[in-house]
Nucleic acid binder design. Structure first.
Length: 275
DNA sequence: ATAGCTACCTGGGCGC
DNA sequence: TGCGCCCAGGTAGCTA
């Protein structure tokens, strides 16, 4: 959705300039802010692509403008009279008379980098696996990779080199749908169960995108800044104490990987022996 | 090599 | 009312 919004608003346009308001937003552009601003200016945007939580703008000359959204990064189409948003990190203006594009990021885990000659696949993300919504994504290959891991299933789902695009929220929702406890060992799950889990993850992502993303934390909002309603359809994530939508048992919350995991203790029983 | 842990960062929400 | 603390989470980079 973010990508489609950007495709609609930036493809075909020539960047007049980018103004970086926060050095941290370009910390991955090693040559620094001034170099970033100079490198980006003047390029025309040919396409916008995505892998996991990364987006990159394909520029003329084969260069890439890579954006990582972190957990709170957003692109927004600016209206000319709006006061700058407090989380504004960079603003793109264009050679035409159209609206500018803002990169916002509250918690500053995200950032931008200009990567010359890396339009096809920027080097920082070559190690990322495809995500379940990518047309070239291979379910069976991913099932095999997951089942080869001797690690808890949620840890594997969050490993972006195995499958990308699944964060803490989507992982908990997919596990709930597939009735799998987060602590079960990946190599102990049957092929059909892992398949079910990946299908559930793809469904969660599809639904979230259709609704404009989770408005929880404004994590994903569409490019116009409209927040989604996905959070209202969450069955497990953030729902501790509330009844499981399937069986009515109160949803439980547990700490895992320095994060929270939410699950239904009846539909998603804990493994007897945690490994 | 691989698995697992921690730091990074900000501001909304909460308790006092 | 206001201060201070907790918490959220993707991932680079570290250790074991």
């Amino acid at each position: 959705m973010v990508r489609l919004g950007l495709v609609q608003h930036v493809v075909g346009r020539s960047i007049e300039r980018v103004t970086v308001l926060s050095d941290r937003a370009v910390r991955r552009h090693v040559a620094g802010r001034a170099d970033f601003e100079a490198a980006v200016a003047g390029h025309r945007v040919l396409d916008v692509r995505r892998r996991g939580k990364y987006l990159w703008w394909v520029l003329d000359d084969g260069d890439a403008l890579l954006a990582h959204l972190g957990m709170s990064g957003q692109f927004r189409i600016g209206s000319p009279d709006a006061a700058p948003h407090p989380h504004l990190r960079a603003r793109f203006t264009f050679a035409d008379a159209g609206p500018h594009v803002d990169f916002l990021d509250q918690r500053t885990f995200g950032g931008l980098a200009f990567l010359p000659g890396q339009a096809d696949l920027p080097e920082p993300i070559v190690h990322l696996a495809l995500d379940p919504l990518d047309p070239d994504y291979d379910v069976e290959a991913t099932v095999a990779r997951i089942r080869a891991k001797r690690s808890e299933i949620k840890r594997v789902l969050l490993d972006q080199t195995v499958v990308s695009g699944i964060g803490n929220i989507y992982a908990d929702e997919a596990l709930w749908r597939a009735r799998v406890n987060y602590a079960r060992s990946a190599d102990a799950l049957s092929r059909p169960v892992v398949r079910r889990l990946l299908i559930a993850a793809a469904e969660v992502m599809t639904e979230a995108l259709a609704m404009g993303g989770t408005s929880f934390d404004a994590l994903y909002v569409n490019v116009n800044g409209a927040s989604g309603y996905f959070d209202r359809s969450l069955a497990a994530y953030g729902q501790q104490g509330r009844p499981c939508p399937r069986c009515g048992t109160p949803i439980r919350r547990e700490a895992f990987m320095n994060r929270s995991s939410f699950y239904c203790p009846k539909c998603q029983p804990r493994p007897r022996v945690s490994r």
